[in-house]
Design a protein around this nucleic acid. Structure first.
Lengths: 203, 203
DNA sequence: CGTTATACCGTACGAGTGACTTGTAAAAAC
DNA sequence: GTTTTTACAAGTCACTCGTACGGTATAACG
């Protein structure tokens, strides 16, 4: 038989081609032939690695989520010294926003999946899985801030954490629609963080 | 010729059939034949009222936006006596959320158009048009609240208004994905409003 | 060696797509 | 009463879609 091939790597290449198309033409504008052409391979070859279109979509979604997760973790670990909880939260939130081309592509693909998830229970369950974990992480950071006296203890709640996440999502939407510029989005985010942490005028 | 027909009314009927499909199967799952069947008419008749699919989509979007606008205005006018600016804002914001079946359908259709708008400059411009007007209305209410001493004057800004709108959008997203229950979404909204208006514990 | 599993390619199928054309009946306009 | 315009129905067009299948070259394996 021919050389053994790294299936996972091939699948990743195909997934990246899918993202490139989905971020410009939308998920429904991404036919198997388009993806194959974008990846520079034949339709037959694509089908060899993904027996069905749904398998390709599922793989691509999971993969892009994993990449975003990794990207944000890296940014947090790149913070110098001992970052304050507020620094960690801000890094995480800004990492969730489509501020550069890479994360914009991710957000566009995410938006395409979002609409699909609204009508697909399986996809919706998958999209919903990560949220509680993220919320718990946020809540933990809020509690750490409260312990350090940087936040009123009454503010270290799950609700405040979900508020942050919901806000980030809304900001992402308007960034994609170009209602906000990146600068505006960051200003709004910092405005809310300032209110949460009880900044006074001279901060 | 046959009886003169109210074209606008026919178009509205077709648009409503489109919504019913789009809210369950998504916009891309709504072929002309599906919409015609849902509306109980022939494909030829549908095409008599909408020469192209795009014309139908555009009409349906504008119509649903107009309905949502009217719905929110009605709710505000239904407030008893002299509503406070905070009441007006809360009514407006809750009116933007998909909390019941009617508004959920609207939000689902809106979400379908959102993904399309991300890749379509014309649609994006149309979606973007309403935002500044809404923001100005919000800012006006904030200023009115500040004049009445119900809000720190420094908070009566365009940014605070956009923050409210962005949050409502994020809450809508998670309502559609069933990450939030309606109760949770309202609680989060009130939490933010409370922070904005400087509530203390005993409110 | 030969066998066989693997990695592809090319093509074709059946279903569905939006757009368009033709046909027909009815009522308004003259 | 004839003409003309409107309101539809039905069929057709070229095209795209996901999927399936037959064929072939290759190299690992017994």
């Amino acid at each position: 038989m021919p050389k053994k091939v790294d299936h996972e790597a091939r699948r990743r290449e195909i997934a990246e081609a899918l993202w490139r198309i989905a971020s410009t033409r939308g998920l429904d504008g991404a036919g198997l032939r388009d993806v194959a052409a974008e990846a520079g391979i034949s339709l037959g070859r694509l089908q060899h690695y993904f027996r069905t279109k749904d398998a390709m979509l599922t793989f691509a979604l999971r993969h892009i989520n994993a990449l975003a997760d990794r990207r944000i973790r890296d940014r947090i670990e790149a913070l110098d010294g001992e970052p304050t909880p507020r620094d960690v939260l801000r890094t995480c939130l800004t990492g969730m926003l489509p501020l550069d081309d890479r994360s914009r592509t991710g957000a566009l693909v995410g938006a395409a999946y979002f609409v699909r998830a609204v009508h697909d229970a399986d996809l919706r369950a998958e999209a919903r899985n990560g949220i509680p974990l993220l919320r718990d992480f946020f809540t933990g950071q809020l509690r750490r801030a409260a312990d350090r006296g940087e936040l009123p203890p009454a503010r270290a709640t799950d609700d405040e954490a979900m508020l942050l996440i919901s806000l980030a999502d809304g900001l992402s939407t308007y960034l994609l629609l170009e209602v906000h510029t990146p600068e505006q989005a960051l200003r709004l985010l910092d405005l809310h963080l300032g209110q949460l942490f009880g900044d006074t005028a001279g901060e």
